[in-house]
Nucleic acid binder design. Structure first.
Lengths: 196, 196, 196, 196
DNA sequence: GATGAATGAGCTTTCATTCAT
DNA sequence: AATGAATGAAAGCTCATTCAT
């Protein structure tokens, strides 16, 4: 029973996620979402008590998804350089296969402060993802591959760079496919973060 | 006479800019803006025909402001390394002194697609700023300081990184002041972009 | 269920019809109509997507009503002279019992072009009514009672005349009741249209 | 001096007349009219104290214009039959050369009751025109050409018929030019009104 | 007389949320 | 759990009219 409810919740989140990413938070209405899930408006409120709460659950869901992917990389026995590359690959892959996720992250979560202010203070709602990046970084430092520096400076570089690229792709400004930038970007980032 | 109208327009833009950056585009109402300018709602429409148009004028205004600042750097006779540093300084300085500008850029312009789709295709509305970054980059390449690579990859790195840092600052996640990251970031970026 | 919705739509149309006819299209507000139906403003929009659409549905509704009445006359086995008289009677009767209908026709539909331009091109929205008048006229010609002439000249005479009388009545200019003019008018029209 | 003011008033009335006839009373704004007269909004109010008053002055102006035309016919020494024809000709001519006048009469004056209720009770504002039609009719009766009947029944026939035709023309429904209907219509009307 | 910036009430429409069924 | 009609507050925008210059 409890499972069934969870499945329905995820269906709603997936539909809402796509619509939010596509049209923006305010331009997506609850009836829009309900229609997309093929469910009545009233019933939606049995699963999520408000539009804001739905938005917050979605960002947690995305953070969990990405966190898991990176954890898998962190657990592999490979060089920091290789890890760096694989994280970038996973990020771009997600941007390619599930563009709504990265879009939601960049355009909804990062920009719609009013909505996430309460209940997502700090980076609570995005915790799983940030933690894994932190682990990647700390292990890189520990084994001497990465230069010791403020984590957030490194994080800003990493995530800002990747986010920036996906953004440009989304605007149809990039001449090439994201994959084709992986070499350049890996090189740039590793060069910036590495110890030597 | 025409000057007086221009001055009023800029007053409105400044007030709207602050409110949009603070509360978001949709959570800021025209009455909010009117109250902030101490002007009647109706009269606002004598200056900007719609909320959307106001939003677009603001981003052009910001782009012009930042473009001018970077042009001043580009025109100086200093090394690419030094230019890189100064651009970062200017960006962070702006984020510090006029935080609403960078915020607007990151949170409103980049995220509220529905609004900027028509009339800001490609990067038209942000043209002045992008052009100066392009000049910085091309001159760096020409004089052998920067590695020749896809401009947008470099642009994504530069702007994504800086944007990411300002973002983290805005979320009160950064332990230190933005200025204190200038060394690290300059180093990281220049290392990533430089020819050797 | 679908019936219930249809009934409510007709209730709204009837209330709106009365208000429009009484106060004019622009001087009747949606809140006015909602109050008259004892319904919330928002809910009105679950039945009619806009004020304009409501206005168009109303004219179709009236055209259907009058068309049906005239069809019943057309189907009767009586002389053209008698048909003429009965059409006039029906028209005046309607003007008497449901004055809002004729008023709406004359004062809203015929005059508020901006509203009916799109969606009511030609005489689409008033089709059922015009068709029946056309049948009356063609059958009269076929059986030799009416003189063959341009249909629209005949239509202009017939409808203009009747409309003009109702208008004068509405302005409280006519000294007598509309019924009392039936003889005169029947005579005038039939004399004008008849073959001899 | 007083003349100059009168000339300006007529210029405004002519411009307003055209706009009202074209776009309707409510869809024509004071700024629209001001722009059309090439005059400031504020100054317009030096000539007409309100939009409503302007509308009322216009209908009086039209009534005067048409009244004068018909008076000229009434004063001629011709048969009632010929007078009937000439009135129709004048009406159609006006509809052709100054379509805004007839349009204003039919679509604004007759339909926008809210506006004309106060100050145009009965037919005050249209007095000059109606009086001349009355004279035409009474003289026709006096000399035995027209059947004695209720004046308003005759008036409704005459004006309703002509108005209906112009209406149909305005809707682009009439296959032929208005002039070409003069014979038919003269015949129909005279037949309906005449004594034999 | 002339200007046009300024006012503010009022309009249509939207939409998150509730609630009777 | 499920429906979707109903609510009503609030949004963006318009426009007749006024008023300082």
């Amino acid at each position: 029973m409890i499972d069934k409810k969870q499945i329905k919740k995820e269906q709603i989140m997936q539909c809402a996620l796509e619509l939010f990413a596509l049209k923006g938070f305010y331009s997506t209405t609850i009836p829009d979402i309900a229609a997309s899930v093929k469910m009545s408006v009233g019933n939606m409120y049995n699963y999520f008590k408000s539009k804001d709460i739905l938005a917050k659950e979605i960002i947690k869901y995305i953070s969990g998804y990405l966190g898991k992917k990176i954890r898998e990389i962190n657990e592999q026995d490979i060089s920091t350089k290789e890890k760096t590359r694989r994280i970038i690959e996973i990020y771009f892959q997600t941007a390619s296969l599930k563009p709504e996720m990265i879009d939601y992250f960049l355009r909804i979560y990062l920009s719609t402060r009013e909505v996430f202010r309460e209940g997502c203070e700090g980076m609570i709602c995005v915790n799983e993802f940030v933690t894994e990046i932190m682990i990647y970084f700390e292990e890189g430092v520990k084994c001497g591959d990465l230069r010791e520096q403020d984590f957030f400076s490194a994080f800003g570089l990493f995530m800002g760079y990747l986010g920036g690229m996906v953004f440009l792709k989304g605007e149809n400004i990039l001449p090439k496919d994201l994959d084709e930038y992986v070499d350049d970007i890996s090189h740039n980032i590793y060069k910036a973060l590495s110890a030597d």
